[in-house]
Write a protein that binds this DNA or RNA. Sequence first.
DNA 1: CGTCTTTGACCTGCGC
DNA 2: GCGCAGGTCAAAGACG
Length: 354
Amino acid sequence: MDPWITSQPSLSLDLHVGLPPMGHHHHRYQPAPPMVALAKPKLLVEESFLPPKKDPEVAVLESELQRVSEENRRLGEMLREVAAKYEALHAQFADLATAQANANTNGVSNNTNNPSSASEGGSVSPSRKRKSEDSLVGGTPSPPSHAHPHQHHHHAFAAADQAECTSGEPCKRVREECKPVVSKSYVHADPADLSLAVKDGYQWRKYGQKVTKDNPCPRAYFRCSFAPGCPVKKKVQRSAEDKAILVATYEGEHNHTAPPPTQPQQHHDAGKNASAAKPPQAPAPLHHPQPQQQQQPKQEAALSGETAAASELMRRNLAEQMAMTLTRDPSFKAALVSALSGRILELSPARDVN
DNA sequence: CGTCTTTGACCTGCGC
DNA sequence: GCGCAGGTCAAAGACG
């Protein structure tokens, strides 16, 4: 997040989200119809201790105002904190983009004559000779770019370096260094939804599922089936800490153009199908996975514009995510109702009418 | 009938 | 060498 967010007046809300009841019990969240809370405050606060000779109603409102102001300040601090973190991430992203541009200008030849991305996966070997396939995949330097979608948080880990992995060096170190680009994104999903679908606009074909040691939730393995021969894989697993969060790990680079953007993305998936089964529905990924051949010549020149566009997109995604997360939070809804009711009461000219 | 998901088996890397 | 864990394969079944 950047100053844009902190400067938005609409973001300064008089809300108390997820906070413990403060003194008065009338703001506790009730799962019952939210509007019930609207009528409550006036009655309940009258029981509190108030200085004499002061209109109890006014005192209540004052204390309420004070409390709300305090919360507002606290939320503002949180927002600033988030904004600072966003800035840090953004700077990191800019660094990566710069590094990517440099790498592309230095090592263009690595990308174009990449036989594996076209052959690997395009024609599936009938037999299980993965040893040779592995050496092919592992020994192929991945072109540096961002081949993965958008969504909440997103970290891209480029390979350790882009040094060529010559076939003459079978050592483990070389293999390690030539790992494809790996990136992670965290997606909010309904915990009740068992499908590990992360809609990112691409078509994915599920080819495996595994329960891992450190997480009781199974991890699903997908391959990009948007274009034949696309080497990109992704792993999707629910976060062990928060089952509502899907962690998608993307590996490799798409060797095709990004799917056309369509309707705004819905993060819940009512169908039973994983993301592979549907045609692309999501907006274009944050970092457009352009084919490397088209990307390189103009990349440096277009970098600033692209970064700006990416930043804008990131902003929108972030705002969407925040809105979505908040609106799914029952305590947020209760807080919203409470804040609105307080404001309505405050502004109402007939508020002293019983 | 073609495509996709499921799922058990297999392969590979790694630590001991 | 052995066992473990992660990743992948491919047969079988579901589905449109």
